[in-house]
Amino acid sequence: MKHNIRVNDLSRSEFINNEYDLVILASGYEPRCTYVASLLTGTRITDPIVFSYEESSTDPAQIENEKTLGDFGFDQKLSLNHNEVKKVYQAIIEKLKFIAVGSEPYKILIDYSSMSRNWYAAILNYLFNFFDHTVEITFVYSCAEYPLNSGFLDFELGDVKILPGCQGSSITKSKTAGIFMLGFDKIGPLSFHNLLEPNLTYGMLSAPGSLPDYEQQARDINGQFIQHQLNDGKNLLCSPIFSVSQTFENLCQLIRPIKEEYNISIVQFGPKPHLLASTLAGISFKNVSCIYSEYKRSKSHDVKASGELVITTITINHNPTKN
């Protein structure tokens, strides 16, 4: 069995100085949508494209963002719904149709700061399972300051969804292990715990978080869950927000010893770099499922880039075999 997904953290300068065959950005109403594009003005990009949220296509903030992105050279646009993956598959298959097997690794850059997780999961699904050429994907996340006020924390859970390519082996494995990625949602993890009824429960917390007090806030918000469901914290693991490779490694450490007996369901809350790490686990392990619920917030929030970046490169070798 071969491991063939290599996850490395990258520095800011390396990321800006690289050349990319394909760059995919997302455009929504968040101000930070344009931040990464603004850093890339001097970078060589062969094929730039923007995935644009159809749901908010008339939002003035989004229109403004798209204009700015256009000014930065991102004028190719694909408009799609946040959970539409067929269009993503079609777009990526089209782009990669003529890549010759055996030549240099194909380099992709994805800014997933405001991107629907369905989209980048679909891309990873295709590249990992159905594409024969070596690819190097650089994922960039621009950190933001979240207004942790009651308005922001006032949300309702929506439908339960499974990430494309991450359905795991829940049909044939009789036991379930849950890994709950904890964020600022107090009741979500508990709702999912009631839904999944796992035989084994682990939790993962972002520590350190993107701001100094985020770790403690997350611990407080999830206090009950940590105490009651995570055996008073014994089953809680900490992973830094700034390193997807460390987080992925921590997940592998949890997953490897139990993957013969259990189907592992990763419940996705928490910061986006952790979502990326867990999506990678869902894609690269046969029996890992990624589950989430979409929040319904009563109003949109102003999420600006703080300037910090989390940059990760994922190398997928050809002839993939899943773990």
Partner: peptide, 13 residues
């Protein structure tokens, strides 16, 4: 009947 596989069916139009 696990939600993991039942809800994943939504991904297959």
């Amino acid at each position: 009947l696990k939600v993991e596989w039942i809800n994943s069916l939504e991904n297959y139009e």
